[in-house]
């Protein structure tokens, strides 16, 4: 059953809409990531689902009910804010049970649910502290606990990890995903970080300029980008976009090989512009003059140096072709099953 369903939702403050006729469904127990650069309307979309903004037109359903005109409190959602939105004067425990108190849940049940949730997010030793006495990661857990304890059918996350350092972000990514799967939560997760979206989500919605650019499982976005925008947004480094007459050839750096290649291969020649050693592999960027650069991912270290002339090739079966408008050209590639 779809827990969240949007039907042609549009939001505009000025003449340029921030969200343009967006429709999608989130099946129960799934994590859907809304991904996109800043200003693409992803946060507005989440706020529309939360009821913090009213759509200009369209329909929003949560857990089978039309909630388009309902206030946030009646939408049966929980939300984690980018700033965590913890109440600074309340202890961790009071912050977590704030919603239960407001909704007049009995003391005994409150205590019981608090103990359970504090255990899940490993906050039990810190329940008496104030948010100011916690580290960034712990505050994040309090925000998470507040969302979990509500036991609402849908949980909304607004860039929840963007205030954490890289190490902690990785840990929390794994943890949130594990938690979401263990508790069977339905989650809508907004992020600008493609790694978060790709590693955590069942479905990724990539947005650009207020509309959905592509919607699908992470592997589909990576392997079969529908537009050059998707190709260049997803992946680190992103897909190489090599202009070739009327079309643009898209090829992932890991599919680019050294050497002149054989018959039927696409071949290019250029000078090494940069060599980035990453440990397990090395990214070699080859300059093509005015045709831009092609990045190749090579296993391990390399003896290549900046300025070396280099032959590159790849198999056309592994490339994505785009037309002048940047749209994917359908190909007969049955071997590329997704």
């Amino acid at each position: 059953m779809a827990q969240v369903a949007l039907d042609a939702v549009t939001k505009s403050w000025t003449e340029v809409p921030a969200v343009k006729s967006v429709s999608f469904v989130v099946p129960e127990g799934q994590l859907v990531a809304i991904l996109g650069p800043s200003g693409c309307g992803k946060s507005t979309l989440l706020r529309l689902i939360a009821g913090l903004e009213e759509p200009t037109s369209g329909r929003i359903e949560i857990a089978g009910r039309d909630v388009t005109g309902l206030p946030p409190s009646e939408r049966r959602i929980a939300m984690v804010f980018q700033s965590y939105a913890l109440f600074p004067h309340l202890s961790v425990a009071e912050n977590i049970v704030f919603g239960l108190k407001v909704r007049r849940v009995g003391r005994a049940e409150r205590e019981q649910r608090l103990a359970k949730v504090a255990d899940i997010v490993e906050l039990a030793p810190y329940l008496d502290r104030k948010p100011a006495q916690l580290s960034g990661g712990q505050r994040q857990r309090v925000a998470l606990a507040r969302a979990i304890i509500a036991e609402q059918p849908v949980c909304l996350m607004d860039e929840p990890l963007s205030n954490l350092d890289a190490q902690l972000r990785h840990e929390m990514r794994v943890e949130i995903r594990a938690l979401q799967q263990r508790l069977g939560m339905t989650m809508v997760y907004v992020t600008h970080d493609q790694t978060e979206a790709m590693t955590m989500a069942d479905t990724v919605i990539l947005m650009k300029g207020g509309s959905i650019e592509q919607l699908g499982p992470p592997a589909a976005l990576y392997e079969r980008p529908e537009t050059t925008f998707v190709a260049s947004f997803v992946g680190a480094p992103p897909m190489n976009l090599v202009p070739d007459g009327d079309v643009t050839r898209g090829i992932r750096p890991e599919h680019v090989r050294l050497g002149p290649g054989g018959a039927g291969d696409v071949a290019r020649r250029g000078t090494v512009a940069s060599v980035e050693y990453l440990g397990a592999d090395t990214i070699v960027s080859v300059s093509q003059g005015e045709h831009g650069r092609i990045a190749a991912r090579l296993a391990g270290a390399t003896t290549l140096k900046t300025g070396d002339m280099l032959d590159l090739h790849w198999s056309p079966a592994q490339e994505s072709l785009f037309d002048r408008a940047g749209r994917r050209i359908a190909r007969r590639t049955p071997e590329l099953a997704v």
């Binding site: 939360a50 009821g51 913090l52 206030p71 946030p72 409190s73 959602i77 929980a78 939300m79 804010f81 700033s83 939105a85 109440f87 704030f98 919603g99 407001v102 909704r103 507040r146 509500a150």
Partner: peptide, 11 residues
């Protein structure tokens, strides 16, 4: 954000 968080919690 505090007001919004509270309004989602039903306050």
């Amino acid at each position: 954000d505090l007001r919004e968080a509270a309004s989602i919690e039903g306050a």
